[in-house]
């Protein structure tokens, strides 16, 4: 079986090479940043295995690495790198020379992801696990990216080393934004372990008139949005708001339908995901990828949809859950 671990090693290798190229260019902060970040990818399984055996020093070292990454990130600024006129001219002439052949490798990423996903799924039902069944789509995406890279190098007739240089340029353009999803998920873990969610749920349920089902429903819906905005993730908000308000008040006291409340309640939380910089991989990373001058540009574009949809969800719940 192709373990997802192998793909992590490849990510680690990409980070190490980027680190080395940056250090060679005397961009020390950026180089050190990629070097430290490669550690969880190269030694991830070792850390988790050691932790399971009761040896905590590797995890503690990784904790220090997280703090180091925070400090290094605060020393480097995200800057939009303007392409040189030479690069612009080159891209224009190349796009004319290669024409629609350029689309083939780009579309190969989604196409191969699909094929690998269904292919590996079918084989897995026959008892043959080609890809890691626990991370099937992401493994498929990883391998599809490699196949697309081979296609891209062939179509453009570029040497393999160009892949490293271009990958490193994109990585440098993303900078610390790349790390934000991972540290936010880490923060979610810390919040869960230290009882932040329970404290918020206790505060909210102490403030609402519990006999009014409208008040309870509004508190649940707005709580999902608010808590998702804070945590950057509706998955973290759901158990907290459900345990605090949804289950005891709405379902047990007011007789709400759990399936409908669960499904639409989660999607109400997703409206919060559209609003928050904490959901960095959806809101901040694309702003950097698209070279927007405003880090919050994508969020601004989403606010009206998020608010209108939140209202729609509240109305749907009012109509549907108390049948």
């Amino acid at each position: 079986m192709l373990r997802v671990e192998y793909l992590y090693w490849l990510v680690g290798a990409l980070l190490i090479v980027s680190a080395w190229l940056n250090l060679r260019d005397r961009r020390h902060a950026m180089g050190a940043f990629w070097l430290v970040l490669s550690a969880p990818f190269l030694f991830g399984n070792f850390v988790l295995d050691a932790h399971q055996r009761g040896s905590t020093w590797p995890a503690q070292a990784m904790g220090l690495a997280v703090i180091a990454l925070g400090l290094l990130a605060s020393r480097s600024r995200l800057s939009v790198r303007e392409d040189s006129a030479e690069e612009h001219a080159r891209r224009d002439s190349e796009s004319l020379r290669l024409g629609n052949r350029l689309f083939m490798p780009a579309l190969a990423i989604p196409a191969f992801t699909l094929i690998l996903y269904f292919g590996a799924g079918t084989l897995s039902r026959q008892g043959l696990d080609l890809l890691d069944p626990k991370a099937l789509t992401l493994s498929a995406l990883g391998i599809a990216s490699l196949l697309a890279l081979i296609a891209a190098l062939r179509v453009t007739r570029s040497p393999a080393v160009e892949a490293i240089h271009q990958g490193r340029h994109l990585l440098d353009a993303l900078g610390w934004a790349v790390l934000l999803p991972m540290v936010l998920a880490t923060l979610g873990g810390v919040f869960a372990a230290t009882g932040v969610g329970d404290a918020i749920a206790a505060l909210t349920s102490a403030m609402i008139p519990v006999d009014s089902r409208l008040a309870c429903l509004l508190a649940f819906a707005l709580g999902m949005v608010f808590f998702t905005v804070i945590m950057g993730n509706a998955f973290a908000a759901f158990p907290v708001m459900m345990a605090g308000i949804g289950l005891p008040l709405l379902i047990h006291q007011h007789g709400a339908d759990p399936a409908i409340l669960g499904a639409i309640g989660m999607l109400t939380g997703y409206c919060g995901t559209l609003l928050t910089p904490m959901a960095a991989n959806f809101n901040i990373v694309p702003a950097v990828l698209l070279e927007l001058p405003d880090q919050y540009g994508v969020i601004r574009s989403q606010v009206p949809t998020a608010l209108a949809l939140m209202l729609a969800n509240i109305l749907l719940m009012l109509l549907l859950v108390f049948r």
Partner: peptide, 22 residues
């Protein structure tokens, strides 16, 4: 240890970096 362990457990979020070279 908690920081380090949760950080490593979430490394799947950066698997998309493999699309960057292509």
């Amino acid at each position: 240890a908690l920081l380090g362990k949760t950080f490593v457990e979430n490394r799947v979020l950066l698997l998309f970096l493999l699309t960057l070279p292509a």
